[in-house]
């Protein structure tokens, strides 16, 4: 079964995602900051990454509004990880913000709050199959 890396600094949000993914039979691991996220991705080579954008740059560090964007850039520019699909999950969802996620190289965007779990699950499925959204 597919292995998903959840990158999310909010504990309750992590729990929500864990519950949903477990329910659907996915495996997952969790990272809560930019540094851990990049390391975990390299080490575990997940099938997909759910990437929060606003989070600390390193464990216990200051929250940055762009840490997730940096992580996407790093992973997408590394040959080893560039093919892992990344879904940016953020409560930043204004047009210019979304454009910045896309420029960084994310494959898809799911904005928070997750008003519809089905949509989130469909986006995950679609990206696991390697057919990113038009």
């Amino acid at each position: 079964m597919a292995n998903i890396l959840i990158v999310e600094d909010d504990e309750t949000n992590v729990k929500l995602l864990q519950r949903l993914l477990t329910m659907k039979g996915y495996q997952f691991s969790v990272a809560t900051n930019q540094k851990d996220a990049v390391e975990a991705a390299r080490r575990e080579m997940p099938d997909l990454i759910l990437m929060d954008i606003q989070m600390p740059e390193e464990p216990g560090g200051k929250v940055s509004a762009t840490a997730g964007i940096e992580a996407i850039r790093e992973l997408k520019s590394d040959q080893q990880t560039s093919s892992v699909p990344i879904i940016a999950t953020s409560a930043h969802d204004l047009p210019e913000q979304r454009n910045r996620f896309k420029e960084a190289g994310c494959d898809d965007i799911q904005s928070k709050p997750y008003t519809d779990f089905n949509e989130l699950l469909e986006t995950i499925e679609r990206n696991l199959k390697g057919t990113s959204a038009p």
Binding site: L16, A91, S111, K112, P113, T115
Partner: peptide, 14 residues
Amino acid sequence: RHDLRNRLNLIHGP
């Protein structure tokens, strides 16, 4: 807006 949306997730999700 970000903070508000993020918090709303804790209502929508459960």
